[in-house]
Amino acid sequence: MTVERSRSSLRSAPYGRSDEPAAVTPASGRAASPRRWPRYARSERLAPYVLVLPAILVIALLRLWPLLLGVNFSFTGDAERDGRPVGFDNYATLAYDDLFQSALRNVGLLVLILPVAVAFPGLLATFIYLKVPGHRFFRSVYFFPAVLSPVIVGAIFNLVLAFDGPLNAMLGIAGIPAVDWLGDPHAAIFTVVGVHIWATFGMALVVFLAGFATLDGSTQDAARVDGASIPQIIWHVFIPGLSRTIQFVFVTTMIGMLTSMFGLLYVMTSGGPEGSTYLPEYYIWIQQGQMNRPALASAASTVLFLIMLTVGLLQVSLLGRAGRDD
């Protein structure tokens, strides 16, 4: 439609070629004949769909179709009941499985830790924006962990956090008793989340810096002239101005925590100790492979998908409402 309108406007506007005779015929015989318009218009109308088709096909075939298949499989059985519909049995198994409940509790914990995971890069980005001494150095160094693969990060921290490793040795020098970072069931999940934040905050930092670049400096200057302190500037100028950025970082960090921690879990704790660092992703992997229960794994995947959908939508609506000054 837009194309037709612009085409007609092309016709009506004078071309300004005063040296040409009045009868200006548009090129290549694509004349004003009304009969030719519909054909051209139709191909113009179809063009956008054709151009978008590859992306749609990719999403439909590689995302939506497997999603439907997975939900479908979650209603079938395992082992002897392979291929037979079993209704909600798998979901019932999940509801009574201590391990899966532990995984869901950990998801809740991640949601609670999320503000910390967002505030940390946000604060660092603020300091870089405020040009603390060494900000150029920090800007490049902070991104470095994000380029490391989770396996490398896991291997490094396995060594650092070992019971007889350097971190406990340093604590020993300071007189603090050694902590079994990866072996204490109460500490392990926080340890792994901490390492994950260390490994991924670089990405969020870069997004925040980009957000800062879009800020209008005049509001900040006005606040400073009015005598606002740094915390006041942060709270009243930066955070409202960055609301869209914060929203984006919240959602992407949540998705990252729920779906990208598998590598760290696998390398650092194998879901232990005592299953205290289980996450739904790890549970799915174990059930499908080692325990040979793919239908149960499909049910767990469906539950994970619903959780992510809910949490994501909630976040977007909550944060959208909070930062409503656009």
Partner: peptide, 17 residues
């Protein structure tokens, strides 16, 4: 329609042998 198909519970997660 998609939901109905998904909940049909046909086919097998374990694949055929």
């Amino acid at each position: 329609l998609a939901a109905v198909l998904a909940l049909a519970g046909c086919g097998s997660a374990g694949g055929s042998t």
